[in-house]
Amino acid sequence: MKKKIQSIIYIIFVLTTFFALVKAFIAYKNPLNFFENPLVWFALIGFVLVITLKELVNYLATKKATELINEKEGIIPEDPNLWIKKLMAKWTRAKAIEEEESIVLDHNYDGIQELDNSLPPWWVYMFYATILFAVVYLVRFEVMGGATPEMEYQEAVAQAKMQVNKFKETTPDLITAETVELLTDASSLKRGKAVFNLNCASCHLADGGGAIGPNLTDEYWILGGGVKNVFATLVNGGRDGKGMISWKNTLKPSDMEKVASYVISLQGTTPEKAKAPQGEKWIEE
């Protein structure tokens, strides 16, 4: 009676859940979207778990009943792992201890006998695979002149350089020390002055006369003059361990170009308190 009640409850649950899932799949637009319809997923998971557990319980019960019947009738069941043992014996060609006398060699050393075992098939097949690989490798790289890893690397580097150059050509705001230009229009210099006063005047003073940093109005430069060198200094920073920090993570390339152009425009001006010259005299080529 108890098993009948359990079976009835199980059948009712399966049918109810099945029809509810079918209705949900028909009614909802995206029934498998967990965030929109989490109940559908809970019902689906519960449905699968109940069926799986039911089948597992049936399997274990059947297995236990079979074991009890075999024990009662004195039947010794076949080892379930016998097929694994047969496979291993075939794959390794191993002889059982009882059969080793048939492969004992005639000679012995100090009573130590040697067995004439054959090589395991897995070892033999692996050896054949290495021979095949060597032949393919020889034909591919020595006869047909296939690309070596070094050649593939050089090709990849060349392709990457082409992509970088193409990217530079199609990106207007990508300015480097090689492509930077000296800007002389009023709007660019006005923007450069504003950025300079905000970030650079604390070390170089607003008029460029120099304080902690060097004088930017004379002809002497520590890291070279000209718009390219000034831009490179903004990007990379000053000398190691001292000098200006790198501004590449703070300022946009276009703003650094305007600041460099504004700094160049300060050449020849007369600041109120000019700092003594530093570095070497720069002569524009």
Rank of each mutant, 00 (worst) to 15 (best):
A134V: 11
I175F: 03
N197T: 07
Q159P: 00
A194M: 02
N117Q: 05
M151A: 12
K190I: 05
V195W: 03
A186Q: 11
H107F: 15
V157M: 12
R191Y: 04
M144C: 00
E152R: 12
Y137G: 02
Y153S: 07
T179G: 06
E152M: 13
Q159K: 06
M144L: 15
V124H: 08
D116M: 02
Y128A: 09
E155K: 13
T171L: 06
W123P: 00
Q159V: 01
A160I: 00
G146M: 04
D116P: 03
Y109H: 10
V135A: 15
L189T: 08
L189D: 12
E142S: 13
L119I: 12
T176M: 06
Y153T: 10
A186F: 06
E178T: 13
Q163T: 02
T176L: 10
D116R: 00
L174C: 01
L119K: 04
P149L: 11
E155A: 13
A129F: 15
F141G: 05
L182T: 00
L183W: 00
L132N: 11
A147W: 05
G111A: 11
A177C: 02
P149K: 04
Q113W: 05
L174K: 05
P120G: 13
N117D: 03
T176I: 03
T148K: 07
V180H: 11
Y128W: 11
G146V: 02
N199P: 01
V135L: 15
G192E: 05
R140V: 01
F167W: 09
F167R: 02
V136F: 14
N117M: 04
S118F: 03
W123M: 14
A147Y: 06
N165F: 11
F141V: 05
L189R: 02
Y125G: 04
L138C: 08
V136M: 12
I175R: 02
S188N: 13
V180T: 14
A186I: 03
V124R: 14
V195D: 10
A158R: 07
S187P: 00
V157G: 01
V164A: 13
C200D: 11
Q113I: 03
T130H: 10
E152N: 10
I112M: 13
T170Y: 01
G111L: 07
V136W: 12
T130Q: 13
I112V: 15
V195L: 14
F133A: 15
D110Y: 05
V124I: 15
Q154T: 04
L132E: 09
R140N: 01
T184P: 01
E178L: 07
R140F: 01
A129I: 03
M151K: 09
F196G: 03
L174D: 08
